[in-house]
Write a protein that binds this DNA or RNA. Sequence first.
DNA 1: GGTTGACCTTACCATGATGGGAAGGTGAAC
DNA 2: GTTCACCTTCCCATCATGGTAAGGTCAACC
Lengths: 130, 130
Amino acid sequence: MNIGQAAKASGVTAKMIRHYETIGLIAQTHRTEAGYRQYTPTDLHNLRFIKSARSLGFSLDDIKHLLSLWQDKQRASADVKALAQHHLDALNSKILELTQMRDSIQELVAHCQGNQRPDCPIINGLACGH
Amino acid sequence: MNIGQAAKASGVTAKMIRHYETIGLIAQTHRTEAGYRQYTPTDLHNLRFIKSARSLGFSLDDIKHLLSLWQDKQRASADVKALAQHHLDALNSKILELTQMRDSIQELVAHCQGNQRPDCPIINGLACGH
DNA sequence: GGTTGACCTTACCATGATGGGAAGGTGAAC
DNA sequence: GTTCACCTTCCCATCATGGTAAGGTCAACC
């Protein structure tokens, strides 16, 4: 299976598959004589795992860790949970941060008439440290 | 006023002040004979404006636009509002995205026992496309 | 006068995940 | 034998920010 098909089947672009190989997130694959990468169903499995983890916002570093836990039949689920909990905390922090920004802007926007006159609470808010 | 004092007074690091100058977000300042940048109260005003806007998550590109609207006494508040509304929409999208990630992970974490055994719904969820 | 320490300067490199594009080789079908 | 889709590597860009290195400046103090 060529990289293009692996990309289609996994939802990871060919570009990214090569990148993941470069940074050691996935192992180097077999190559044809011409140098084309060949992917097995097992490789696809890994790529889908990475795709899932990425769509939950895990960093590639975290995913490297998750992959090794996945492969490790002796793992303690506590290790996985700790990693996920850490990411959960980070997400919550980020959401809080963005929500505060959102609320501030929303308030400014709500008070702006949005007409042809220059008077604008948004600009004023920014200028005065709101 | 040297760059260090301007940094302290505005909350923007010296590094970033230089960077903002490089990319044309702020104008080049006067220099002493030795080449030291000199900042006026007006410059400080601008830096504080930038700082405020950054802390609401506006991009430097947006801020460039906001600064010109701020300076433009003929502006229509509708233009400012449109820019802010656009950013508001982007923030809401991002918040939604992160919240969905958060909820998914939270559910996985809630079902993981987090003990010494390998069985783990988080890993399983990732492996099966959850 | 000389040293010290805090400040300034520019220039380059790094982050994290992804995309774009160029220049060139390969494979299969027609 | 050409054509077209695919593959290869390599380099550059994003975005805002930080780090570091190598070197110049200033003021104070002995």
